[in-house]
Write a protein that binds this DNA or RNA. Structure first.
Length: 423
RNA sequence: GGUGAGGUGGAUGAGUGGCUGAAAUCAACGGUUUGCUAAACCGUCGUACGUCCUUAAAGAUGUACCGAGGGUUCGAAUCCCUCCCUCACCGCCA
């Protein structure tokens, strides 16, 4: 959620920034400013009258104590008259405030200054590439064929037991999942991230805090009996650890990492994009999250990008890093870097990580603040990134490390896998 | 799922209709004392949204908040209703 203060004082600038994100409903900005103005007027009036009511109520108490019943009765009537006018005013104030909140929730975060213009994924900017795309032998296979050749993943059984997008991993495939999760967590904790294992169901307040709700509930699985949502990423439960918390400045930065399965309905996805591991309803992911002082967040974002880059490099995969353009960025993000690895057999890039700085957008929704040295409370900045998402990493490992003798296991994974080659 | 007891400020915990935004203790912060540490003493010590004042900071002031939402009352932390949560015991169970 954008800070009202910014909207109030810099409405035109906000519109310029939102234009970079290709935001359509620009009139909402003016509505916020207008509703805010109205709310303040109403509150001033309400406060003043309520104050009078409170004063008189106290006086009634004093009159009663002195036994001056008639004078008290007289005052009671005066209060009653005043309150008759106060109720509609209170209602109006509440309605205005509700409208204001409703519109505030519809405004996406403002893109940072270095976010490139653009509308579609094609306009994202490649900031770096790394690794080398291997020359594969004749007859190389896409990962779904490799997965069945070596008995690693069973899509058909998943289909029967649950539905499409819910594969079974088995044998060395299952072990590879476990190895990757453990390697990623070890890598992250070695950099000072505290490990969490969160609940996989969250309540609506948490979905609201990180920005999935109210608009994107269609992307999450929902349990109506209990009012819980299956998490689409560990970001949701872990970031919400600090919902409604007032931190000390010495508590920052807070660095957290968590493995969790991720559940996504992916309504509206279809076609070749969903083949094999490219797009699933349930997948494994390890996430890193930081809560930091506002002045540090841009530097921390760079550090997190560098952290993820080292991880991708260690898996010996060809990759590139994109800075997302305004039109391709998420609702809550101020700036996002995507990591993609090259799927050599499919000859396309697959997103394996997305690292974002949300600045105060989530913190404002979550009311996560800290007291600075001057004793002023301000919102923290929140950041997160995948480190890493498993399925496409697995696809990349299978395709890029395939040989006639089997799949070469990257050196960093061999001790976790207990083997150098998957045969 | 059943029964019972509870949810008060960073923590413990008092408070059954007005003088309680809330005692007391602890923690925290600032200071005095001190060779250092400790102790002692003095002071400060909730949040949100407004208004006034100010270039701003500071300051003054109003309203709201004692799990959430409603209700009774001139007046509610305190009484009533609904919901949520926690704890204990029972049932069930990885």
């Amino acid at each position: 959620m954008l800070q009202l203060q910014v909207l109030r004082t810099r409405a035109e600038w906000v519109k310029e920034r939102l234009a970079v994100k290709r935001f359509q409903k620009m009139e909402l900005v003016d509505q916020v400013v207008q509703l805010d103005d109205q709310r303040r007027r109403l509150q001033a009036e309400f406060d003043q009258q309520q104050s009078q009511v409170n004063t008189w109520s106290k006086e009634i108490g004093q009159l009663m104590a002195k036994g001056e019943r008639d004078a008290a009765e007289e005052k009671k009537q005066a209060v009653a008259a005043l309150k008759a006018g106060l109720d509609p005013l209170k209602k109006q104030l509440q309605e205005t405030d509700a409208q204001l909140q409703d519109i505030l929730l519809q405004l996406p975060n403002l893109p940072a200054a270095e976010v490139p213009e653009g509308k579609t994924p094609e306009e994202n900017v490649v900031v770096r590439t790394g690794g080398t795309i291997p020359e594969l032998a004749e007859g190389c296979l896409p990962h779904w064929d490799l997965a069945s050749k070596y008995g690693l993943i069973d899509f058909e059984i998943g289909n029967k037991v649950t539905g499409s997008g819910f594969p079974f991993y088995r044998g060395k495939g299952a072990k590879l999942q476990r190895a990757l999760i453990q390697y990623f967590l070890d890598f992250n904790t070695a950099s000072g991230y505290e490990e969490f294992l969160p609940p996989y169901l969250v309540n609506a307040d948490s979905g609201f805090g990180t920005g999935q709700l109210p608009d994107k509930e269609g992307q999450m699985y929902f349990m109506p009996e209990d009012g819980y949502y299956l998490i689409p990423t560990a970001e949701v439960p872990v970031t919400n650890v600090y919902r409604d918390v007032l931190l000390k400045s010495t508590d920052l930065p807070i660095k957290m990492t968590a493995y969790s399965p991720c559940f996504r309905r992916e309504a509206g996805s279809y076609g070749k994009d969903v083949r094999g591991l490219n797009r699933l309803h349930q997948f494994e992911k390890v996430e890193i999250i930081q809560l930091v002082r506002p002045e540090n967040s841009h530097q921390v974002l760079d550090e997190m990008v560098a952290h993820v880059e080292k991880l991708v490099q260690s898996l010996e995969l060809p990759y590139r890093i994109l800075r997302l353009c305004g039109g391709d960025m998420g609702f809550a993000s101020a700036i996002t870097y995507d990591f993609e690895i090259y799927s050599t057999a499919q000859q396309r890039w697959l997103e394996v990580s997305s690292v974002s700085n949300f600045e105060s957008f989530q913190a404002n929704r979550m009311k996560c603040r800290f007291k600075d040295e001057e004793g002023k409370t301000q919102f923290v900045h929140s950041l997160n990134g995948s480190s890493l998402a498993l399925p496409r990493i697995v696809a990349g490992i299978l395709e890029n490390h395939q040989t006639v003798d089997g799949i070469k296991v990257p050196a960093v994974l061999q001790s976790y896998m207990g083997m150098a080659t998957i045969q």
